[in-house]
């Protein structure tokens, strides 16, 4: 298992490296932030001066080497716009995004596995169809529409929850959960549907297996068999969703953080791309691709742990 992990990580290294280089070249080709910094009445001289000050006038390969050099010293550089260290900017935003992602997974796993079990138990019946419809519906509505509806209902009409914003869990855990609740629910619509489907499918597949038939034939009650199978199988969709859902999480995070005004990485990255704040984008992309590689490794290992038939 350890050898497998090491091999996978080594194989993933070129991916991360390639992604960084590609993003670097692509972005630098797309223009720089000098014009926006120079303002409404910018002159060519002013532009050139700003480029020189930010070292954007160097050849791209020199800029790349400089960045690489920084990276090897464990530094991510400074934002071209604010001058803050990228490490601080990303660090400040990490908690909100992580909270949102974890809360979303929690909500969607709880509801999704429940719905999936329900559908599988009543296979072919009207409950199964209803769950199916809910799932397709969850896939079909843009998440910002769900977000606006939730805020309007729970924060404005009922006044139960705050409409926006974030409070660090270390500051006030209760307030943290109140702030994260609505965004997590808004984001979980897609996942919920996904998890419910996977749960249903994997349950049905397992229920058809020989050993289950044997158990039934040996007189185990239907309910007992079902619960056993269901519980053992619940882990699989959770793991799958974490693997598959990474990209979807990030798309959702960008929108949800805007709707609920959460200070997270999604907003940071959109702003950075739009402002061509290279050091920030490069750092975040690097972070994302490393997380992606690690996540996939963990998912594969988890599969092996959950399903003894898989061996690496």
């Amino acid at each position: 298992m350890l050898r497998f992990a090491a091999r996978r990580l080594l194989a993933a290294l070129p991916v991360v490296a390639a992604v960084s280089v590609l993003v670097f070249l692509f972005l630098r080709a797309s223009g720089d932030p000098a014009a926006e910094l120079a303002g409404e009445d910018a002159t060519p001289e002013r532009l050139a001066a700003i480029r020189a000050a930010l070292e954007l006038d160097l050849p791209v390969w020199q800029q790349f080497l400089a960045w690489l050099g920084q990276l090897l010293h464990g530094e991510f550089g400074r934002s071209l716009i604010s001058g803050d260290t990228v490490a601080r900017m990303v660090g400040e935003r990490l908690e909100a995004t992580l909270s949102l992602a974890l809360a979303t997974i929690l909500v969607s796993v709880l509801l999704g596995v429940g719905l999936g079990m329900l559908a599988a138990r009543h296979r072919g019946g009207w409950l199964d169809r209803a769950v199916g419809l809910v799932c397709v519906g969850g896939f079909s509505v843009p998440s910002f529409v769900v977000g606006y509806l939730l805020v309007w209902w729970f924060a404005i009409s009922l006044g139960w929850l705050p409409a926006q914003g974030y409070v660090r869990i270390g500051e006030d855990a209760l307030e943290w959960s109140r702030r994260i609740a609505l965004p997590a629910v808004a984001m979980s619509t897609v996942f919920l549907a996904l998890i419910a489907r996977i749960t249903r499918a994997s349950l049905l597949e397992t229920l058809d297996q020989d050993y289950i038939r044997t158990a039934r034939a040996l007189g185990a009650t239907e309910a007992r068999v079902f619960l056993r199978v269901a519980l053992r199988n619940a882990a699989v969709p959770i793991v799958t969703i974490i693997g598959v859902g990474f990209g979807v999480v990030l798309t959702g995070v960008v929108v949800t953080e805007t709707v609920f005004n959460l200070p997270g990485l999604g907003r940071l990255v959109v702003e950075a791309v739009l402002a061509r704040d290279y050091p920030v984008i490069q750092c975040v992309v690097l972070l994302f691709s490393v997380v992606y590689v690690l996540l996939n490794l963990v998912v594969d290992l988890a599969y092996a742990a959950l399903d003894p038939r898989i061996r690496y």
């Binding site: 404005i156 006044g159 705050p162 409409a163 709707v259 609920f260 005004n261 907003r267």
Partner: peptide
């Protein structure tokens, strides 16, 4: 505080945030 979304800002003002 930055509010990219004006609607969200009005919601926050209404809710005394």
């Amino acid at each position: 505080i930055e509010f990219r979304d004006g609607m969200t800002a009005v919601n926050a003002l209404t809710n005394n945030e």
